[in-house]
Design a protein around this nucleic acid. Structure first.
Lengths: 218, 218
DNA sequence: CCAAAAGTGTTTGATTTACACCCATGA
DNA sequence: TCATGGGTGTAAATCAAACACTTTTGG
């Protein structure tokens, strides 16, 4: 969301695409605007940068305010002018963040309704937020392929199937279970934590954890 | 270079890391500041964004002003606050550009001296420009590995050796000539243009051109 | 004993790397 | 004929992709 200022002044906004996996689908958090312009439309969360903190800290603060999530992966996407039609002197510094949906408590107020939307079914949005989402989708997909950033989408312990379904939701295709396991383990992304989870009339699944929760390429 | 404004106002600057190959080395264009703060120090070229054009067009305009180069590769790097210590409300949107040194005519004025510096031997710079250069070096290196953007570093026709030396200067290691040729050709990056260049007491080299001068991944 | 998900290795093909000799030219 | 850089192919190794059966559990 881009707050509005005098149209003649530079305005620096941050905008965040917050991703989480819900029901095996990639979701994005949107908030409903409750002011003109674009009143009542859904938009990406964001805020104006005041210069008091570093730019990225403004994004982090907004993320925490909306989701309560901490220690998540946050990365700058790009900066664009002209996102907000109403102020030609505004620019938006866009970020994307990955959160574990179970750690999230949405800030729900009467005038501020955050809501998760399936990332592939988002249509009309305030401003030109669609552009931002498309770039974010590209980036998260390629990032997942050669880094461990999925750690911020998953809880502390998880089964291999849960991990694989997370990857599949984002990349949009199925993987071979044996190859997936081999690759995650041989790239030192995950390791068994020794526990198992029983959840039905079948063999319990070993639980895994991420070896590192620092962004790492492989 | 970041122009100075009232310290209480938002200032949006663009900064460009302009790369070219000179004498088989990767070089960066710097300009000497002729105003406070940081008077007399070398800095990356840049300018203030006024909101009249798109952000990227401001960077393109600055690039042309400094080098005269057109149709070059220009990509946004990232945006940072705090690059300019003197105004806490300033941000810099940073770009990197690749130009062919032979197409360049530097704008040389008494108060504005642009100069090429070996990219790996840049030390003291105005503001925190070093950070920007480091990111740019990372980016150009990885970009070169899986895209054709080298087209903007080279003239219209070139030998395989010239191309390889360009890659070696940037990536910082030597390649096998046979494998390099194979990869460039099988990835449809370059093709012979039918001409040859004689330049000494040895077999003339075939000249190549880029198949496409649109940024393409492979 | 049945249904459901978990676990596990091997083979094939594709890609990447390493490596050495002959060719064309001008002096 | 010599010195210099230009041109070329093959074998080995590594990596990625395809693929099916056995195990554990609860009901």
């Amino acid at each position: 969301m881009q707050p509005i200022q005098q149209a003649n002044e530079n305005e620096i906004a941050t905008v965040i695409v917050i991703f989480a996996i819900k029901n095996k689908h990639l979701n994005i958090l949107l908030v409903k605007r409750s002011a003109e312009p674009e009143d009542n439309k859904w938009a990406l969360p964001g805020g104006t940068w005041t210069g008091e903190k570093k730019l990225q800290e403004t994004a982090t603060a907004r993320l925490q305010l909306e989701t309560g999530a901490k220690d998540v992966y946050l990365e700058q996407l790009f900066t664009i002018s002209g996102l907000n039609n109403y102020n030609p002197k505004s620019i938006a510094v866009c970020y994307f963040a990955l959160v574990n949906e179970k750690d999230v408590t949405l800030r729900a107020e009467k005038t501020w309704q955050p809501k998760w939307f399936n990332a592939n079914q988002i249509n009309s949005l305030a401003f030109k937020n669609k552009v931002v989402i498309e770039k974010a989708l590209e980036r998260i997909e390629s990032k997942l392929q050669y880094s461990n950033v999925a750690y911020s989408l998953l809880p502390n312990e998880f089964t291999l199937r849960e991990l694989q379904e997370t990857y599949e939701a984002i990349i949009g295709k199925k993987f071979d279970r044996r190859n997936f396991r081999k690759s995650m383990i041989s790239n030192n992304i995950i390791i068994q934590n020794g526990k198992f989870r029983k959840s039905g009339a079948y063999r319990p699944a070993a639980l895994y954890k991420f070896i590192s929760k620092v962004p790492t390429l492989f």
